[in-house]
Design a protein around this nucleic acid. Structure first.
Lengths: 191, 191
DNA sequence: TGGATGATTGAATAATTGTTCATTAATTTT
DNA sequence: AAAATTAATGAACAATTATTCAATCATCCA
């Protein structure tokens, strides 16, 4: 089988790692278990990753990138501002939602010192398109003229919070509840 | 010194644990280091805590409780609705802010499987006063008539997000920026 | 087909780290 | 002030777990 380095094997390892971290947390993550879960020998993991630290950092980037790509699909900044904003907001919600598990991992990891600062740097890039859009909105006089970071807090904060509530079983997420939240958020930021 | 079980010693251990978790994460937490940081012998930690797991769970509860007490100080639900809401929002912001470090710990821990479910249960109680207030607001026709959880997402989500941005050095937090965020949030939820 | 190259294995090893407990120190009691 | 009680110590021990690497297997090419 193995032609060149097999990329699917790396993904296999990623999947296993993600699963185990979600089950037992970072502290409980064992390389031997990762390998077993991925149907590989312990040593094999070390062929694809330098060490445990490397594995976790790579996984973080992999998930972040995948999420970004998904998130940006089908968004065309040239459309009407309100439409782009709405699309982008729901896209962010849906992608974050569809990957609840990954989100839990990313959150957990984001707050942990595993995260190398260069990795942190790259991960910031992801919100770039939203920043751009918000600046445009302020320039066009369609959004309240406040610091973009503040607008952003108001825009994505509620999404994260609602997904957390969902995670705790406190709220249902469906077209209606998403829309309700969207209305509140927009009412807040529109000029 | 030691009279009965000395409570300050427990706090000392808590402080050290918190510091070390923030520096190195859960995965990097070593009992020997906790002890050393607290100027105690390794074994002493085991006098006050059953084991590592116990230490972390206790610390979580300790911080949560302390935060709740602080947060609720000086809040009188009998005052005028808008005033209580404003007070409670800023109190939540300030307490969360003043304890940024603790917040990072709580976040990290919240997402980790260390958390025993009973501990999770107790920690939910903390937002109870906000829930009550929001229900009152909806009843009095002062807030949009949507699910309280959704209102809550819109209220505390932006706070968490802004503090995270602050943590990343992306935004300053002062009276002005807090007020700006407050205006956005309230504009969103007011009926 | 046979040898060369590359991939995989997993038991053995090396490190790390949680926990214990015999000993010592401090405090209280009689 | 001696005995009794309680607290603290930290080196030794026990587990756990990351990592290595000599041996094996698979694939490729001459």
């Amino acid at each position: 089988m193995a032609r060149h380095r097999d990329y699917t094997k790396i993904e296999q390892i990623f999947e296993s790692t993600l699963k185990l971290v979600l089950e037992k947390g970072f502290a409980g993550l064992k390389m031997a278990e990762v390998a077993k879960e991925a149907n590989l020998a312990t040593g094999t993991v070390y062929i694809y990753f330098k060490d445990k630290d490397d594995l976790i950092n790579q996984l973080y980037l992999f998930l972040k990138r995948r999420k970004t790509i998904l998130f940006l699909q089908g968004i065309d900044q040239k459309e009407d501002f309100d439409i782009v904003l709405k699309k982008i907001w729901f896209a962010y919600f849906e992608v974050t939602m569809q990957h609840v598990n990954e989100s839990a991992f990313l959150e957990q990891y984001y707050r942990s010192p595993f995260l190398k600062s260069n990795v942190k740097e790259e991960s910031k890039q992801i919100l770039k398109p939203i920043y751009d859009l918000l600046e445009r909105g302020v320039a066009e006089g369609k959004l309240c003229a406040v610091n973009v970071e503040i607008l952003l807090s108001q825009i994505v904060g509620p999404i994260h919070e609602m997904i957390r509530a969902y995670h705790d079983g406190a709220v249902e997420i469906n077209a209606e509840s998403m829309n309700q939240l969207y209305q509140l958020v927009m009412k807040g930021i529109k000029a």
